[in-house]
Write a protein that binds this DNA or RNA. Structure first.
Lengths: 171, 171
DNA sequence: TGACTTTTGTTTCATATGAAACTATCCAGG
DNA sequence: CCTGGATAGTTTCATATGAAACAAAAGTCA
């Protein structure tokens, strides 16, 4: 018989596992709350300006920088290049974004907002600020201020965890 | 001319919008950090047990409750019923989950772990706890403890925001 | 009983995602 | 020059998602 002796009596791991409460699991709660917030924000941006979140992010970073290559946008907006490419194509199609060749590099592109795009930008950024403020109103000022550094540390730490054992699961 | 007089001189909204820094926008940072964490956790669950996050969540709540209908799983795991249905089908196909008819309601189903499923559960829950602990190690104990209540409040608040003006954007 | 409405769960369909393939350009070494 | 990489962006493909349509079984009320 290969069965463990614990087949009849539930062993410690079993007993411990059965006590696991998903609603007390912090990564789960983080995911639920964040996705809900993202969903709400996405709906608002879409209702007001027809923008998806990737499109909104692209507009935000280009509105700030003036001109940016798709690769830089990907860096600054924490998006992969595929998402940037698609969001940019959609914004160009709607006349909000201009995509020019980079005179110094035949592969590169120069992204910048059109006049119309700046108009949208001028509206969507205050909306974002308003939404952020509404969200902040759900926390005490202290909690809200604590959240930023916590997120920074979590992000830095998860990056370390990713690098730490990439080979461990690959074999 | 319908153009605003601000066409030549950038108005206040424009100037303010141009100062917007995505990396200082908390909802964005929340999303980036959370998605990165979810991605890492998903990879670990998948490497170790071939489970996706929806599958993992279904196993977690059923492992805790013993027997649960798909609807209840959806409630307890904060998933929509479609995701539960698909995750359950996949788990049944792999022999980890049993899906019986509910004798008291012809529409309902009774989900419970098979022996094999309990074996997986007995392994994946400690893995989750370990990962959570590794994540917690990136914060001070105080920060980690603060995060739970913050997430609860954010979730409650975003739900209030959703209900508050659902008609505002629908018109 | 026999329409209705509601509830439960599955399936369909249209969209969103990202890994990998691909195209075009640039650079480095011979 | 040319040839073999590297790099920038786009496209393809396979999968994941959720809204809406669906099917089946309860409940409801005359």
């Amino acid at each position: 018989m290969k069965q463990k002796s614990s087949a009849a009596k539930p062993d410690l791991a079993e007993a411990e596992a059965e006590l696991f409460l998903l609603e007390a699991f912090l990564p789960y709660r983080l995911s639920v709350a964040t996705n809900r917030i993202s969903r709400l924000f996405a709906r608002r941006y879409c209702d007001a300006y027809g923008l998806s979140i990737p499109e909104w992010r692209v507009m935000a970073v280009i509105g700030r920088a003036g001109t940016l290559s798709p690769g830089r946008v990907a860096e600054w907006a924490a998006m992969d290049k595929v998402k940037v490419s698609r969001a940019a194509a959609s914004l160009v199609a709607r006349g909000l974004l201009r995509q020019n060749a980079d005179p110094e590099d035949g592969r590169g592109r120069k992204l910048s907002l059109t006049r119309k795009g700046r108009g949208i930008h001028r509206g969507v950024i205050p909306l974002a600020r308003t939404l952020e403020a509404q969200l902040a109103a759900g926390l005490s000022p202290g909690e809200w201020q604590a959240l930023g550094p916590i997120l920074d540390k979590l992000l830095a730490h998860v990056q370390a965890m990713e690098e730490g054992s990439p080979g461990a699961g690959i074999d």
